[in-house]
Every structure is written in C-alpha cells, then in structure tokens.
Design a binder for these strands. Structure first.
Lengths: 225, 225
DNA sequence: TTATTTTTGATAGTATTACTACCTTTTTAT
DNA sequence: ATAAAAAGGTAGTAATACTATCAAAAATAA
C-alpha cells in the first residue's frame, strides 16, 4: 500500500492550488530547490520560471508574489511537522518522553519523505532554518495573521505547549517555552553553521548537541522544585 | 558637562562615514524613522532621499545598499547596548545580579539616549526586534562574517556568556544560552505584539513578563544541582 | 457532435527598484 | 589665489515585480 500524504492548505495562500496540476507541483518542487540554492532575497519568479521551463506569468497565476509562496512553504512544513509529531508520539503516554521526541524531531535534519513526491523535506527544512522567520517578520504580519496564514505554526506551538503543561501543570510559561524551543531548534542550527561563536557546538557541528542543549534548557525549566 | 558618545564602527560597512557630515547623520536619523515606519522590505533609498530632501545618489555615496545600512544600524545598536551593559553593571560583583540586569536591559524598551542626538534608540530597538535577524539571515552571511560585520553582536553574546559562566562555571552551554536570551528577548516581544498566542503574555503585553520568563528560563538552567 | 465556456499557458508590456556614470558646486589645504 | 578633494545633483540602465492581453487546449453543456 502506498499512502499519499496531502496537507490541507489555507486557500488564501494561493490563487490556484499548486497541488492540482503538474505546473503547480513543479513550482513547489523547483521553488524549494531554488530558494535553498540562492536564498530568498535573490530568488525571483523569473528565475523560477526559467528553471521550470515556463514563464513568469505562469507562476503568478498560482502565487500572488514570492512572499506568499514562502508563507505557503513554511505553512506546509509546519503542517507536515505536526503530522510527524502526532504520528511519531502516538501511544507515548509519558509527556516527558513525548517532549524529548518532539525536541528531536524539531532539531534533527529531516530525511526526504517518500510520501510527498514533489516536496523535498530536507531542502525545505534548510529553508525553514534560513528563511522561515521572514514569513512573519513583516509589517503586514497582522493582516496575514488575520487570514490565518500562521495557523499551522501556532497549532504546532500550542501542541508543544500542551505537552509542556502535561509535564508540569504549574509551569507558568508553556507557550513561550514552546516558541522558544521551536525557534532555537532552528536558530542554534543556523548559528552553529554560520556564526559558530554564538553557540557551544562550533567544533563538532552536530545536531545531537543542539538537542542536548534544548533538553537541558527545557527540563531544567519545567522541573518541579 | 555634556558627553558625546561615539561608537567606533567597522569601516567596511560604509563607503563614507555617516557620522562625518550632516547628510550622513540625516541618513542615519531618517533611515531609522523610515524603516521603523515602513518595514525593511518597503524601505528604499529613493524614499529615504525624498524624506531627507536629497537624492538617491547621495545616499549611495554613504552606503553600498540598504542591506549594508541595516547591518550598520544593527551593529551600532549592539555596540551601544554593550556599552550600556558595561556602564550599568559596573561595580556589580555578584554575577547573578549582573545577569538579571543584563536580561532587563535586553528585554526592556529603550528610552532615547540624549548622548546620541541623531540616533533614536527607541525606534532603533523596534527595528532590531522586527528586522534585526535579517541582517544575518542571508546567503552571504559567511562573507559578511569574515569582514567582521557581526563582531558587536558576537562580542555582546560573548560578554553575556561570560557572566553565565561566572554564575555557574560547570554549565555546559553558556554561549548558546546567551544567544537564546538575546534572540528571545526580541522574539518574545515581537510575538507578544503580533502573534500573541505564541506567548503567555498576550493579554497584559508587558515587557516585565518577558523579563520574568527569561529570568526563570536562565536561572533554572544554570542552577547548580 | 458541436458550441461555449473555462482553464492553462505565452507575449508584451509598465512602474518601481537598485544601482552607475558623469557633471557641478562647495570646502579645504597650500 | 589656486588646486584638489569632498559633497551633492542629473540622468541614465538593468533587473524586478508585477499586469493586461492574447491564444491554445481542455472541460462542459446543448
């Protein structure tokens, strides 16, 4: 049996559903490649069109602009990750083991998921690390938020915060700790590779060390005294 | 006696020193205003020139492009903040009290500093919160780092990490904890105002709550057991 | 089946952005 | 007073971020 995982996306993120056609899927596939390669600033719809073998206008019929495409990709990633978390922590009763598993999933490099043929999760994970925060660090974050663009991210945070609260119902900052874990899983990775003196993992550059740091940070904080 | 605080800037960040002329100072002053108002994406040298009453080419004689200007402003801020920290924690022996003071300085809204007439620190602090990470989240972070553009940020992190180590010499992640404190002082502020469900301070929206969260996070982590 | 509408994709523009080259005026040094 | 160098302005260009229009293909309705 071959399952095909489909993530339900917010309709306001696109003009035409990219999952609904070959060109659409090509846009997703090649935009991930191209953003990963050039960075979001130098990424343009013209370059993307050339890469795919279509025209700029073709891309514009799917996505209003490159920012919406980035928000789409990040939303897709958060949705996918929450599914991974639900799937992989299923049947785990102990919230502490659950939280450790979540930290691992957040901080660990992603293997490409066979269930989603046109999305390369490994590249997408790198994009989230380098470009992810640009999705919301804008002046129009308020309107974007009203349109629920960040719902998958907020849902994931809420789910992590929930597990934190299960570990210690008296802990006062479950949501802020959750967003801290998620952001730092990515920022410490970026720092480790590009500004290593901002971390303690500059020499080894191993994700396992980030995981250890986050585990220490989280479980010291929520430990009941 | 009126002191004039001058922060020594990396010469590779500008083509002509903006502190050396009226136009240069105007560029700093109005770019801070304009970036704060429009956000970095919509900020252009043309708009800035109109605001000042000069021309685009005039701005380009001081800064190569708007990214360099952003890096300049962030570097200035980190330099200024490190001076504030050194000044305000001077004579404090106890590293724990020192660290608490640092967290407060990092997370607290900034009052405009009279010593720097053409820089509005309050607006600059808002820019750091919303745009600061864009200074290094680029593909050319490596070259920028080689040119020491991020030295003030790294120095500040090192200084904070140093105090962490003084609090507990056996703590394993002083640098990562330092960068976490600094980043989260800003991110939690951004979230609190724009994506409040990612924090536990959505209702009150008070910086004092961010400070409490960071204090709890930091001192649970470095507590000797 | 044919006619009609809708979808899909390509062509050719425009306004804005990000710069560059070149020229004039002002300041400073001798 | 004169030369030089610094500061400032004008007028471009190439690329980016779109938009409007057109043509072909596919879906659907009569």
């Amino acid at each position: 049996m071959k399952l095909q995982l489909q993530i339900k996306m917010n309709e306001a993120l696109f003009l035409r559903n990219p999952e609904s056609s070959e060109l659409g899927k090509n846009i997703l596939k090649h935009s991930i490649q191209l953003i990963d390669r050039t960075g979001f600033e130098l990424f343009t719809f013209k370059k993307l069109a050339e890469e795919i073998g279509t025209t700029e206008a073709g891309i514009y019929r799917y996505f209003e602009n490159k920012h919406k495409l980035l928000v789409y990709l990040t939303a897709w990633y958060w949705g996918w990750l929450e599914f991974q978390i639900i799937f992989q922590t299923n049947n785990i009763k102990d919230p502490i083991i659950k939280l450790k598993k979540v930290i691992k999933l957040l901080a660990q490099a992603v293997k490409d998921d066979e269930q989603t043929s046109h999305i390369n999760e490994h590249s997408l994970h790198k994009i989230i690390i380098s470009e992810g925060s640009k999705a919301y660090l804008t002046k129009h974050v308020g309107e974007d938020n009203k349109q629920q663009f960040f719902k998958p991210y907020k849902d994931l945070c809420a789910a992590v915060g929930q597990i934190v609260s299960e570990c210690n119902p008296t802990y006062k900052y479950p949501k802020s700790l959750a967003s801290t874990i998620i952001e730092m899983a990515h920022f410490q990775n970026f720092f480790m590779h590009h500004l290593p003196s901002l971390t303690d993992f500059g020499k080894e550059k191993k994700e396992s060390e980030i995981i250890s740091f986050l585990n220490d940070l989280v479980f010291s904080s929520i430990k009941k005294v």
